[in-house]
Amino acid sequence: MLNFIQGLGHSGLTFFQRLGRAHILLGHIMAGLPSMLLRWPLIIQQLYYVGVLSVLIILVSGFFVGMVLGLQGYNILVDFGAEETLGVMVSLSLVRELGPVVAALLFAGRAGSALTAEIGLMKATEQLSAMEMMAIDPIRRVLTPRFLAGFISMPLLAAIFSAVGIIGGDFVGVGLLGVDEGAYWSQMQASVDLYDDILNGVIKSIVFGVVVTWIAVFEGYDAIPTSEGVSRATTRTVVHSSLAILGLDFILTAIMF
């Protein structure tokens, strides 16, 4: 029993230590932001790795999610004779929820894990130490541009996901199932609000982008510098950021809608 309580205390302490380190790191990363804004080449390079390389998976998944929504939505709505509102259902599901959330989950798996692995390996191969010995702050030079790139990419990826999804829903609903095209788009336009739905979706995706990249760079930077440590950190990035996305999604939804 005592052992159990001790174990609980131990993991609690480790948790808070890690949380504290993560916040200190975030502060350090933020401190480097102003000077980093003047070094666009570095950010562009990271935007390529973090953003551009995630586009394909976002496009494909967005289209399929939209098609599934179109199919499922049609089957449900047709029972009520309300298949004209298919566009509303597809667009609201995507813009409010699935766009930001699924795009963030994919982003965590695709870009987050890559970030952690890259930074963890740089630590394991002493590249970060070497930078420090060259009087270059590795947090500002390595972590800040990656963080910024994640912050910029995530809302764009989520928007691409939603847009492609709505087109996918149109493809199935209008193209294959015969919903009226005018109804699909006009009902959608009548019900989706720019601020309440789209802007809030964008805010969600910005929050997710910050959280996922933060977790990813922290796990990489805090990884035990061995191959095992890096692989564990990579797993942790995916698990923790997925949990954080879903938990935060609930909180944000409760606040916004």
Binding site: M122, T125, E126, Q127, S129, A130, M133, M134, A135
Partner: peptide, 19 residues
């Protein structure tokens, strides 16, 4: 410290080149 380190060079065990 960073100022001082600019005047030091260090060679890590495996080179630690930026990959």
């Amino acid at each position: 410290l960073f100022q001082l380190r600019k005047r030091m060079g260090m060679l890590f065990q495996n080179g630690a080149l930026l990959t």
